[in-house]
Write a protein that binds this DNA or RNA. Structure first.
Length: 463
RNA sequence: UCCUCGGUAGCUCAAUCGGCAGAGCGGGUGGCUGUUAACCACUAGGUUGCAGGUUCGAGUCCUGCCCGAGGAGCCA
């Protein structure tokens, strides 16, 4: 009887009411909700009468038969109704519904091959909760600028659901991977007193009467927590005030950064490979249905295996030049170089031993080649670009002091960081993996902006 | 920040040489017993991004500005 109570609560408002909703009476309803079923669980309810609560995704009518497709956030369910009387009350209620109106729908679940999803609801009752007017996103095509302007509504569509479910799975996989290997989660601050690397542009904000900056990496703090806990990771949003305007850049993005005491470049490279493989495996086994919706060809993901091709910067340079790249020793990789790599290899590759001059101040130099840095980048296949950047950090106090001087960084701000080299310093390494680039690679979608619910882009902060 | 392209109905776009501003979708009305972006008929819907200029006449040509997209550099 409890579910009947819920239905009658809505029904009492009138079947096509658009007035204010009486939430107080809804809150006072406290009986068990026995028949409320989510669409993703519908298969277990065949033959039973259930209530689905959701929004009108689509509707069609054909004389004496009507179809109502409802989405409830977990899936889509088609409901049907028949009547010889076109003015039947149920039909009148149906006719008043518009796209994205919120509804309670009650009916009997039936297996039905003709219905999308294989199950169907024989509708007995429809109770509108709120009728929406002029929903802007129609079932036809829209331009990306228009959809971005309506991102808060775009999230309701099927493809966006698939991408964001993959994102949730990638995040879960990352946490499970590190937690399962005994890494401690160390949340690093978002408000920081100074640059982590000094090179990239930072968002400045007021910290009472001081200046503060939004973090562009948790790494330096992670080096401190790694010396405290051995192996750690931080996972959170990162901010870069660079005027980047490409499909691979967000102003605000999520990054996971492990840091391991006593680990070398080799150790951290293997860790990165294992992480990437773990994520791919999780997405392939648990989110295959979403990859199907996105029409993702999974073969490029399935063929990724250990070890990834390992290349030193100096090894790959002549091959790039042979293919027409204008890159010369000392230059960092650009988009054309990443694209060429995707021609050479159909799997991700690890590039290491970059010229020290183009890398961050904290990078450990190679023992036999001080002009090279012990850094490693993992470049995803299919031109999805750099997903991992990391390496071995300087552990020697004198060298680090020298680098801070060379880069003209304010020493006072780095006193605590130098302390880590004074009290039990050890070789240590870590990397950062970009969540959105990884998700766009998994999903096979070209633009990173769809891999986060509300992307922050150059010149776009709405909604 | 630089280069390139674009802005016409709610949306996606068309409009020939500078000569009556249009179509599909969506909305509304009616029809149809299995629709899958349903279909059929009718119907309403316009400050052509903004400001100025050339011209008998500008969506179209010129100048400036605003907004957006693609790419580069930088990086995850």
């Amino acid at each position: 009887m409890a579910s009947a109570t819920a239905l009658s609560w809505y029904a009492a408002r009138g079947s096509a009411s658009t007035g204010p909703i009486d939430f107080a009476s809804f809150i006072s309803y406290n009986g068990p909700i026995m028949d409320w079923v989510y669409v993703e669980d519908i298969a277990g309810h065949a033959g039973r009468e259930v209530e689905v609560r959701g929004w009108v995704y689509h509707k069609r009518s054909s004389g004496k038969v009507r179809f109502l497709v409802v989405r409830d956030g977990t899936g889509l369910l088609q409901g049907t109704m028949y009547s010889a009387d076109k003015d039947a009350p149920l039909f009148q209620t149906f006719d008043a519904l518009t796209q994205e109106s919120s509804v309670l729908v009650r009916g009997v679940v039936r297996e039905e091959k003709r219905a999308p999803g294989g199950f169907e609801l024989e509708i007995r009752e429809i109770v509108p909760v709120q009728i929406s007017r002029d929903y802007p996103i129609t079932p036809k095509e829209h331009s990306t600028p228009f959809l971005m302007e309506h991102r808060h509504l775009w999230l309701r569509s099927e493809k966006q659901h698939a991408v964001l479910r993959v994102r949730a799975e990638v995040v879960k996989a990352i946490r499970d991977f590190f937690d399962g290997r005994g890494f401690r989660l160390m949340d690093t601050p978002i408000l920081t007193p100074s640059a982590c690397e000094g090179t990239t542009t930072l968002f400045e904000t007021a910290y009472f009467d001081q200046k503060a900056y939004l973090s562009q990496s948790g790494q330096l703090y992670n080096e401190a927590t790694a010396m405290a806990f051995g192996k750690v990771y931080c996972f959170g949003p990162t901010f870069r005030a660079e005027r980047s305007k490409t499909r691979k850049h967000l102003i605000e993005f999520w990054m996971v950064e492990p840091e391991v005491a006593f680990a070398t470049l080799e150790d951290i490279t293997v860790l990165g490979e294992d992480l990437v493989l773990f994520i791919i495996d999780r997405v392939l086994t648990r989110r295959r249905a979403d990859l199907d919706i996105l029409e993702r060809d999974v073969k490029p993901l399935e063929r990724v295996a250990k070890p990834f091709p390992r290349l030193r910067y100096e090894e790959i340079l002549p091959r790039l030049q042979e293919k027409g790249s204008t890159i010369k020793f000392g230059d960092d990789f650009g988009a054309p170089e990443e694209a060429l790599l995707s021609e050479f290899y159909d799997v991700p590759v690890c590039i290491s031993h970059f010229p020290a001059a183009v890398k961050a101040f904290y990078m450990q130099p190679a023992p036999d080649r001080p002009d090279l840095a012990l850094g490693v980048d993992v470049i995803a296949s299919e031109s999805y670009g750099e997903i991992i950047g990391g390496g071995q950090r300087i552990h020697d106090l004198d060298l680090l002091e020298e680098r801070i001087r060379e880069h003209r960084l304010p020493r006072e701000a780095y006193e605590w960081y130098l302390d880590l080299r004074k009290y039990g310093s050890v070789p240590h390494s870590g990397f950062g993996l970009g969540v959105e680039r990884t998700v766009s690679w998994m999903c096979g979608i070209k633009h990173i902006r769809e891999t986060i619910p509300f992307p922050r882009l150059l010149y776009r902060i709405y909604p």
